[in-house]
Design a protein around this nucleic acid. Structure first.
Length: 181
DNA sequence: CCCTGATTCGC
DNA sequence: GCGAATCAGG
């Protein structure tokens, strides 16, 4: 994808609006967030001040080049197969949000007093489309044509499209389907 | 782990 | 000029 005047203009606007590089990349399409950042630099657009978000108080890089990295020591990254038990094992990463969600789910299933409503039970992160990543729950909430539409956005297991709660709603194994209903 | 922007430099 | 790889940080 090349930087047409039009795309550059959009980049400028979105950057000025405070969108993050990855969000801008998602909107423009065809470019990575690195490409966006690189372009921002070349355009001499003001970087993100040390205000708001998380600056990047990068103290000038000492003559040590980042190139010629340790290609040798690379590749040591092992993709750990994290085993997640169906209900108890929630990743700690999500913090309070994920934890709270799990508690509510457990409670709902344990008490079994009334059916789980269609309406949101877990506390969603209310992410917009472009904010979704491979690890966020893509369960839609609301009417896509109405204002306020968003996605759950809670932590989703490795290859799962939804968080544990919504995975259960989406892939109910008949037995649980009865109880939930 | 997820993410952020900044920087360097091979292309 | 471009942007992947990398760094440094939240």
């Amino acid at each position: 994808m090349n930087w047409t005047d039009e795309r550059v203009e959009r980049l400028k606007k979105l950057w000025a609006d405070g969108l993050s590089a990855s969000q801008i990349a998602a909107q423009l399409g065809g470019v990575s967030r690195n490409a966006v950042i690189g372009k921002v630099h070349r355009l001499n657009l003001p970087g993100r001040a040390k205000s708001g978000g998380q600056a990047a108080v990068r103290t000038k890089r000492t003559t040590t080049a980042p190139r010629a990295p340790n290609y040798a020591s690379r590749g040591q990254t092992s993709t750990n197969a994290v085993s997640r038990s169906s209900i108890g094992g929630i990743s700690a990463g999500g913090g309070a949000t994920a934890l709270k969600q799990d508690v509510e789910v457990s409670t709902a299933l344990a008490l079994d007093t009334r059916p789980i409503q269609d309406v949101v039970v877990p506390i969603s992160r209310r992410l917009s489309l472009i904010e979704l990543s491979e690890r966020t729950c893509k369960w839609p909430i609301g009417d896509p044509l109405q204002e306020g539409f968003h996605f759950c956005g809670n932590d989703a297991a490795e290859a799962a499209p939804y968080c544990t709660y919504h995975s259960r709603l989406a892939f109910q194994p008949s037995s649980e389907r009865k109880r939930a209903r």
